[in-house]
Simulated assay, not measured.
Amino acid sequence: MTAVVNEQTSYLSDRQCFAILDRASEDLQNGLALRAFLASIALAALRPEEARVLRVRDVELVDDGTGWLMVHPQAQERREKDSDRAGTVRRVPVCRELAAILQEETTRRDLGPDDAIFVLDNGRPLTAQVYRKVWQQARAAALQAHELDSPLGRHVSALRDARIAAWLRNGDQTAGHILAVAECAGMSAPRLAERFANCLRKPTRDEIPWDRLEAALALPEPSQSTSTARRP
């Protein structure tokens, strides 16, 4: 995945995402916790406020090293006008890399089922002020000068946008695929298509089923009895 920067939107590349995460892990006080937190956004397309409240019981891992996250709606999400799934718990797939990170963090801190996964090493809650400060420092260290002057990765949610864009580009982009991505992202399909329109491939002329479209839009031919009945 390459970085895309234009006047409308910008997406971090995989390399840039993980460069920023690696820089965040160098924080002397909470580097490991912060990297794990940011990785959950980068790999599962979570909203930062969703990741911050994840508990151990919300993670379901399976034998092949993957799993699922049970993501609970937050107050901010319930207020979003574009969310037609507000108030419902959604299942988000967990790749092997994220599963390993979550397991490592759970083991490192000896967490129980009801414990929050992402807290500071001193036991205090992870706040937006803390992770935003570390994010800005890591972004400044990982990106090049011309990238820092652009919108690229300006906010932590850029990790979520980059993952959603990758999901869209790396699939077949059928209606079913777009709906699945929208469900994982906790967005309505129309809002997803509007927000990430530049990630959707436009069909070529040869791919459009013109014959089926013409058949669907064609007017039915009047029957003989109907035509006769209408004659003066």
Rank of each mutant, 00 (worst) to 15 (best):
T2D: 15
A3T: 15
V4R: 08
V5W: 00
T9K: 13
Y11H: 05
R15H: 12
C17I: 10
F18S: 08
I20V: 12
L21I: 05
L21S: 03
L21K: 00
D22H: 06
D22R: 04
A24L: 02
A24R: 00
S25A: 15
L28Q: 14
Q29N: 12
N30K: 03
L32F: 10
A33Q: 14
A33K: 03
R35G: 01
A36Y: 01
A39I: 01
A39P: 00
I41A: 05
I41R: 02
A42M: 04
A42L: 04
A51E: 07
V53W: 03
R55D: 01
L61E: 00
L61S: 04
G65D: 11
G65Y: 09
G65W: 10
G67D: 01
G67C: 03
L69T: 01
H72A: 01
H72Y: 06
P73E: 04
Q74Y: 03
A75R: 13
Q76N: 09
E77G: 09
R78E: 09
S83N: 15
S83A: 15
R90C: 04
P93F: 07
V94P: 00
R96P: 09
E97P: 05
A99Y: 04
E104S: 14
E105W: 06
T107Q: 12
R109H: 11
R109D: 04
L111K: 02
P113R: 00
P113C: 02
I117H: 01
I117L: 13
V119R: 13
D121E: 14
P125R: 05
P125Q: 06
Q129K: 10
Q129F: 07
V130A: 10
Y131S: 06
Y131P: 04
Y131W: 14
R132H: 10
R132S: 09
R132E: 14
Q136T: 15
A140L: 08
A140G: 10
A140I: 06
A142S: 14
L143R: 03
Q144K: 11
Q144F: 07
H146A: 11
E147D: 12
L148Q: 14
D149F: 04
P151D: 02
L152F: 04
R154A: 13
R154L: 10
H155Q: 12
H155P: 03
S157A: 12
L159K: 07
R160T: 01
D161T: 07
A162Y: 01
R163Y: 04
A166D: 15
R169V: 03
R169L: 03
R169E: 14
I178C: 09
A182G: 11
E183T: 14
C184T: 14
G186H: 03
S188H: 11
S188T: 09
L192M: 12
A193Y: 02
E194N: 10
R195W: 07
R195F: 08
F196W: 08
A197K: 10
N198I: 08
N198A: 08
L200F: 13
R201P: 09
R201I: 10
P203G: 07
R205K: 11
W210N: 07
R212Q: 14
E214Q: 13
A215I: 03
A216H: 13
L219K: 13
T226R: 10
P232S: 11
P232Q: 09
P232K: 13
